[in-house]
């Protein structure tokens, strides 16, 4: 079964193209990384799939239907920076929001919804913080809360925008474990990722993107110098040097870690 299919998906922003004619067919039950340089349109791609960003051409189908009909089967984890962390909601409130999609806007939140939210928080280890306002958490904890919200949505396809950005190493590995667990339940997880080094270990399949689709396929097949060169252009040299340096230092990370 096909989880996500796009045909000639194009997005322009103020007459400047951001994504050009993306044709991709993503099979169900995989852990997929979207990789590419800054400004390659990685976030835009998943936002266009969700309809959060309006596409100027092409179409998207999710589980064989137009997105509008399958929205309830999609869980979306936004980029951390797009959230107002001072917003007056608690950890529990955010997890509960995951249940609103299936509940609809006008029915009361019942014990069933609360139970699902608690379970989701339990799975990411955030239940003890349920009553805390989301601003009083570390970056990694905040990310886990949003994962819990996605879990509470109980979706079949997950789209995550840089879930590893600004989280500590412990949270990163916890998230990876969770993503693998989702995959083993037959869910499809698509993750925007900007760290090439770890992309190779984390994902079954990679989508290499630089405004156009460079390649999509099993990680072993597309993680080649030639294709990466094509994706990153001249910048790859710098990137691979950085990656090697990071590997030598034993951190395995390209981006700075967030302070808790």
């Amino acid at each position: 079964m096909i989880a996500l299919e796009t045909h000639d998906l194009t997005v322009t922003y103020r007459k400047r193209p951001v994504l050009y004619g993306i044709d991709v067919v993503i099979p169900e039950g995989n852990l997929i990384g979207i990789v590419g340089p800054n400004g390659a349109g990685k976030s835009t791609l998943i936002k266009a799939v969700m309809g959060v960003v309006r596409s100027t051409g092409g179409w998207v189908k999710v589980f064989g239907k137009p997105v509008k009909e399958s929205l309830k089967r999609i869980g979306y984890v936004p980029q951390r920076e797009s959230i107002d962390w001072e917003f007056p909601v608690t950890v529990m409130d955010v997890a509960l929001m995951g249940t609103y999609g299936k509940l609809g806007p006008f029915r009361w939140v019942g014990e069933e919804q609360r139970r699902r939210a608690r379970e989701a928080l339990e799975r990411v280890g955030m239940l003890p913080y349920a009553k805390r306002q989301i601003g009083n958490l570390s970056g990694g904890q905040q990310q886990r809360v949003f994962l819990a919200r996605a879990l509470a949505q109980d979706s079949d396809l997950y789209l995550m925008d840089e879930p590893f950005a600004g989280v500590d190493a412990a949270t990163e590995s916890a998230i990876v474990e969770l993503l693998k667990e989702l995959r083993s339940q037959g869910k499809t997880v698509i993750v925007v990722h900007h760290d090439l080094q770890s992309a190779r270990e984390y994902f079954d399949m990679l989508l290499l993107l630089n405004m156009r689709l460079v390649a999509f396929g099993p990680t072993a097949e597309v993680f080649t110098t030639e294709l990466l060169q094509k994706t990153y252009g001249g910048r790859l040299t710098i990137l691979s040097e950085m990656a090697e340096k990071a590997a030598r230092e034993g951190t395995g990370k390209l981006h700075p870690k967030n302070e808790p």
């Binding site: 936002k47 969700m50 309809g51 959060v52 929205l71 999609i74 979306y76 936004p78 797009s82 959230i83 107002d84 917003f87 909601v89 955010v94 929001m97 999609g101 919200r149």
Partner: peptide, 8 residues
């Protein structure tokens, strides 16, 4: 709180 979730 989260317009993208709302849209979805």
């Amino acid at each position: 709180f989260d317009p993208s979730l709302a849209a979805s």
